[in-house]
């Protein structure tokens, strides 16, 4: 029996699996973005119990490993009687993970809007909703762009953890090819290179946005 070697076909499989990494990243960012936005608003709410609940949620998510979120949602959902495909289980846990971090990032951005903006909009008799909609969020979103793009890099990288529950994305594809070819160094360097190709431009974009932001503001 001859072993397969790591060639074009195998690289093609890696590229194919890369799209699942990207799909998972997009799911995590959209789902985590929606949930995280809600938590960020709760974190800056006027009612103290709401603020405390949101803060606890953030502390807990940031205090446990992504792997545990993954296992808990994987086994927890099946206990609750849902027979879910790995993509949904993986997507759900990445969503929860992303929400905990995005909420904290965006809380910082909302609070970075100067207090006078709140006071000025209040004195214009705006409702709380109007304040957010027309005054606070437009400014907060501008501030939030660099760290959010930076966090997207973390999400891309952490989707690799879903390979542990058997979801076939880029890292898992690398393992599968390695099992067939026994050329770990080549295979995993190729996997790492593909991750790098996705993550590096995002990191640079985040830096660029950060620099732009600092040019724009006089503070």
């Amino acid at each position: 029996m001859t072993l397969k070697t790591f060639g074009l076909d195998q690289f093609g499989f890696l590229l194919f699996s890369l799209q699942w990494t990207l799909v998972l990243t997009v799911i995590a960012l959209i789902g985590g973005g929606l949930l995280g936005f809600a938590v960020a608003l709760a974190r800056t709410a006027q009612l103290k119990p709401v603020r405390i609940a949101a803060a606890s949620y953030i502390q807990i998510i940031q205090g446990i490993p992504v792997l545990m979120i993954l296992f808990l949602s994987y086994y927890g959902l099946s206990l609750a009687g849902f027979e879910l495909p790995p993509l949904i289980a993986a997507g759900a846990s990445m969503t929860i993970y992303a929400s905990g971090y995005l909420a904290e990032i965006w809380r910082g951005c909302i609070q970075a809007v100067p207090k006078q903006q709140w006071e000025a909009s209040e004195s214009l008799a705006m409702t709380r909703l109007q304040q957010y909609r027309y005054v606070i969020l437009p400014q907060a979103i501008r501030i939030s762009l660099p760290p959010t793009v930076g966090f997207a890099v973390q999400v891309v990288k952490n989707t690799s953890i879903t390979s542990i529950i058997g979801f076939v994305e880029l890292a898992r594809a690398g393992q599968l090819i390695n099992n067939a070819t026994f050329q770990p160094f080549r295979v995993f360097l190729a996997v790492a290179a593909l991750y790098f190709v996705v993550c590096y431009p995002l990191s640079q974009l985040s830096r660029l946005l950060e620099r732009r932001l600092h040019v724009g503001s006089s503070r």
Binding site: V153, N158, S160, A171, F188, A192, F196
Partner: peptide
Amino acid sequence: NTPFLVQLF
């Protein structure tokens, strides 16, 4: 810019 898991591998 690469995942920890892949570095471990």
